[in-house]
């Protein structure tokens, strides 16, 4: 693999959930518990997992929208973990985000033009007529009429808003984008447009992307590699096709088997029993052992290390014989 564009090492994020009378944290949730990832330039890494597995938290940590409890983040070789506010501005130009909710991510009091122009103004990249021109070009790039410049978000449909959000993210010409469930809030008929737009941006602009989703089929289509997350830990990471067609971790196998297409292809559907464990009190050993159909006594004692199973394909599972 070439030198990574963005890399995270041993990322940990705790959220306090309870404080005692003295304001000390008495209980906390481990949203992310030691995750290491690297994304190469122009690579799309998918982040899969159930809700509550820490996918969005990782996206926000990578963009430094949240401060990690522990771990390091480096971007293009530079450590950005310790930077704050103005020190982060150059990094913010390079790394952008597209949120899941296109309604909430646009300020209702701002016009579409102002929303797209905001990152450019913040980064001091354009002003006056040039700014207007660039916003016009961006509207065109995401196939929105130029007349939308003075409209307000409430006049647009969900798909149009998401295109505004994408135009906004692209405005500063970033090299890395976190797309946090970019299509799950949209109608199925609109999803394809947005996916095509993302793909086009990637090929045309050479973007690297972290695609957060729970849609394995979509990720197989869009991503180079996929990382599967469970309870804030990476269970398996590998090339998208291999991972989806031949999962090596029991959890990935269960996730993949839940995709309707896979089920039709004659695969056995694995239904996980029980709920995702409480992240404030995760199980000992392998965190997945409470729901794993292949669990054996060792699984509740030993924390499995990430180990290679093929070139560029790693899993955190004690057993070699499954699935």
């Amino acid at each position: 693999m070439t030198a990574p564009l963005i890399a995270a090492e041993g990322l940990v994020k705790h959220f306090p959930v309870r404080q005692d009378v003295f304001g000390r944290v008495s209980a906390q949730v481990q949203a992310v518990a030691g995750v290491s990832l690297a994304i190469a330039p122009n690579e799309v890494l998918g982040l899969a997992g159930e809700s509550g597995s820490g996918k969005s938290t990782i996206g926000r940590l990578l963009l430094r929208l949240l401060d990690p409890t522990d771990g390091r983040i480096s971007f293009a070789g530079q450590d950005v973990t310790a930077l704050h506010d103005r020190g982060l501005r150059p990094f913010r130009r390079q790394a952008q985000i597209v949120f899941q909710d296109p309604i909430g991510s646009l300020d209702p009091t701002m016009t579409i033009g102002a929303a797209i122009a905001e990152p450019l103004r913040l980064q001091g990249m354009a002003n006056g007529p040039e700014l207007r021109e660039r916003v016009g070009a961006l509207l065109q790039a995401v196939a929105l009429p130029a007349g939308y410049y003075n409209r307000h978000p409430n006049e647009l449909s969900g798909g149009q808003r998401q295109r505004v959000v994408i135009a906004r993210a692209l405005s500063v010409d970033p090299s890395f984008i976190v797309a946090d469930e970019p299509v799950s809030a949209l109608d199925v008929s609109i999803q394809a447009q947005i996916i095509n737009l993302l793909e086009e941006m990637r090929t045309r602009r050479g973007l690297a992307m972290l695609l957060i989703s729970h849609d394995i089929a979509l990720m197989e289509h869009l991503c180079d590699r996929i990382a599967v997350l469970y309870l804030g830990r990476v269970m398996e990471i590998g090339p998208a096709r291999d991972l989806v067609r031949a999962p090596r971790h029991p959890y990935t196998e269960a996730l993949v088997s839940a995709v309707p297409e896979a089920a039709r292809a004659g695969r056995r559907r694995i239904i996980l029993r029980g709920d995702i464990p409480n992240p404030a009190n995760p199980p000992a050993g392998c965190v997945f052992h409470t729901r794993c159909p292949y669990a054996q006594p060792d699984c509740s004692r030993i924390v499995p290390e990430m180990r290679p199973v093929a070139s560029g394909h790693l899993k955190a599972c004690l057993r070699d014989d499954v699935p």
Binding site: L65, R86, R92, F99, G104, P119, L122, Q123
Partner: peptide
């Protein structure tokens, strides 16, 4: 706490903005 505020922060905005 609104998402658009987080989006502004992601674009490099601070409190003054």
């Amino acid at each position: 706490e609104a998402l658009f505020v987080e989006a502004a922060r992601a674009a490099g905005a601070d409190a003054v903005w």
